[in-house]
Design a protein around this nucleic acid. Structure first.
Lengths: 161, 161
DNA sequence: CAAATCGTTCATAAAATAATGAACAGGCCG
DNA sequence: CGGCCTGTTCATTATTTTATGAACGATTTG
């Protein structure tokens, strides 16, 4: 297997590097996914680090992250001692994994905070101010709820592939 | 006007600080929006920097970013020489602005790249490899298109408030 | 069992990002 | 005009994030 990147590989990897940046994931994570996405065969850690010229640590860490939301799957290769990986190619699976891992926790956390905020508002003496606060926080809660309901909807929109 | 943050303010600001982190925007941007969101009156740069205890530079920069996608609007205050700002409270306006500024450019860019990638694939001699590449890139384009059509749809889902 | 292979972890180095505050430009008022 | 107030910019500093690679435990091989 060639240890340098083809033009095609470079181009595809760049797409995912940019995507990773947009999601504020480390660049190496984008590189790894891009490489695996366009690779006809599953690759092991050594293949990845050689082709991408990144360190073993980054490779191990990056694949761990990718596995954590199911963007990459381990593949058993008979006769090889190393773990191999291939890119999960179902967008839906990846997005679902990503949302569950990285997005939902924040939404949950927000809900908890709201309880405290509502208490604080109730304690406001001056009526006009209290009403303003209630209005704004009401809106905030509306957003939260809407985000919560948009999510499953969006996931559904990404039909089963 | 008090120059220290009330409990309520702190709590609300924290919500937006976290949100900003999620969008990988500077913390100061979250602080500023949170402060304005819960403020009954428009605030000027000096108000903001005093209450948040951040530098003039950060304040100026942060408000610039917030204005860039319409999360904050300038308000004319008769008799004051400083610009004042209030939070835009229409989620839809903010999300639309944010998507147009920070998301769409990436999608566009991706489309451009695809042209080059398709050329590269066409040049692949070995049939089996070429077919694999076509399959994967086809999928990639499917994602792109879907992301493009999900966006306006999601914006619409956020009804006019 | 000794040597080699594999993968992870973690202290450290390097790089990227954000905050600071002084310098500056423009406007306003006396 | 000259001092004063506003807000922006940008070089520098501080902070945070990411990458590196050596050390390690686990596993396999001969």
């Amino acid at each position: 297997m060639s240890s340098t990147l083809s033009e095609l590989e470079k181009e595809v990897i760049e797409i995912f590097v940019r995507l990773a940046a947009g999601l504020s994931l480390p660049r190496s994570v984008g590189e790894l996914y891009g490489l695996l996405f366009i690779s006809p065969n599953p690759l092991c850690i050594n293949d990845c680090m050689n082709k991408l010229k990144i360190s073993k640590g980054s490779t191990s860490q990056g694949l761990k992250i990718l596995r954590s939301f199911g963007a990459v799957n381990p593949v058993y290769i008979p006769g090889s001692r190393s773990d191999h990986f291939e890119a999960e190619s179902s967008l839906r699976n990846i997005v679902t994994g990503f949302v569950n891992e990285q997005v939902r926790p924040h939404l949950e956390n927000g809900k908890v905070r709201m309880a405290r905020i509502n208490e604080l508002i109730a304690a406001e003496e001056e009526e006009e101010r209290r009403e303003f606060f209630e209005m704004r926080i009401g809106r905030l809660q509306g957003w939260q709820k809407r985000a919560g309901s948009l999510l499953p909807f969006a996931l559904n929109f990404i039909k089963p592939d």
